[in-house]
């Protein structure tokens, strides 16, 4: 194919424009987080403050409850991601490989759970968790997040399993493996991209979830960081500098996590995409 310089340039410019638009809020987050309080309202709109400072960061880490929020969020998001991925792998494999009665209805029911706006479910969920003593607890959050993420993750995993030829596990079974050993030793390693994609998807979803965390958690001890960010809003003012610093810190685990799995993710997302 002959290259057309104009189209190439236009293409790159379009991508650049998209990246600028997408990343600008992040940049603003960073900018505000390093702006000293006295300059925040006095310098007008500037791309970078005349004097940068890390005082918000030191305050957030040393003097606020943020480390607790951060730890809680890590526990909740990490546990949810692992629990969902295990459940979704097993369920997705069953949907992909086994023929069983009522499969159609199970799939339909799982889809139905995805149809309701979460806001509608807050009250009943609170009502259910309250007598079990699971409100204001990380376990309660993990259970709720897991329940809400499993259906979609199951469909995601199913599409990855569908992409792996059945011949492979049949060969393994003839080689002397049980179906479970074939699943563990042959199919799972080949589904790593799918597992990484599911882990990443669920981790970020749980990491940034606000609604349920806000409704089910009261008090700082069990608060996750999205809830914790609200503590920077006081009756008469919002401490933007500290809030933004906390926000930047909260981004770090998500970024690290994606850095870790991105090798699998690139294959994984495309594989999932092709299978639809």
């Amino acid at each position: 194919m002959r290259s057309k310089p104009f189209l190439t340039v236009a293409h790159r410019l379009a991508i650049l424009a998209y990246i600028v638009v997408a990343l600008f809020p992040l940049f603003w987050l960073l900018k505000v987080s390093v702006t000293p309080n006295d300059l925040l309202y006095s310098e007008g709109v500037r791309m970078w403050p005349s004097r940068a400072t890390f005082e918000h960061y030191t305050f957030v880490i040393a003097h606020s409850a943020f480390p607790t929020f951060f730890k809680n969020s890590l526990i909740v998001a990490g546990s949810t991601a692992v629990a969902v991925t295990i459940l979704a792998s097993l369920a997705g494999y069953a949907l992909s490989r086994f023929r069983f009665r009522a499969k159609y209805w199970i799939v339909a029911l799982m889809l139905i759970t995805q149809m309701f706006p979460l806001v509608m479910l807050v009250a009943p969920i609170f009502k259910m968790l309250s007598p079990l003593g699971l409100t204001n607890s990380l376990t309660g959050l993990i259970i709720v997040y897991t329940a809400f993420n499993v259906p979609f993750a199951t469909f995601l995993m199913q599409s990855f399993f569908d992409g792996i030829p059945k011949d492979l596990e049949e060969a393994a079974m003839i080689d002397g493996a049980t179906q479970f050993v074939a699943f563990r030793q042959i199919i799972l390693p080949l589904t790593l991209p799918g597992i990484a994609a599911t882990l990443g998807f669920v981790f970020t979803a749980a990491w940034s979830e606000l609604l349920f965390a806000l409704m089910l958690i009261s008090g700082n001890d069990a608060a996750t960081f999205p809830v914790g960010l609200l503590t920077f809003v006081s009756k008469f003012s919002v401490d933007f500098g500290q809030m933004m610093a906390a926000g930047i810190l909260a981004l770090i685990p998500a970024c690290l996590f994606f850095l870790l799995i991105q090798r699998y993710l690139v294959q994984g997302l495309t594989a999932g995409a092709v299978k639809g």
Binding site: D167, E170, M173, I174, P189, L190
Partner: peptide, 20 residues
């Protein structure tokens, strides 16, 4: 009997080699 207990070997059209 499960395939693993029949002591037979099979060559598939797709070869079905374990990619990893």
């Amino acid at each position: 009997l499960a395939p693993k207990d029949r002591d037979i070997a099979m060559v598939f059209q797709s070869y079905a080699l374990y990619p990893h």
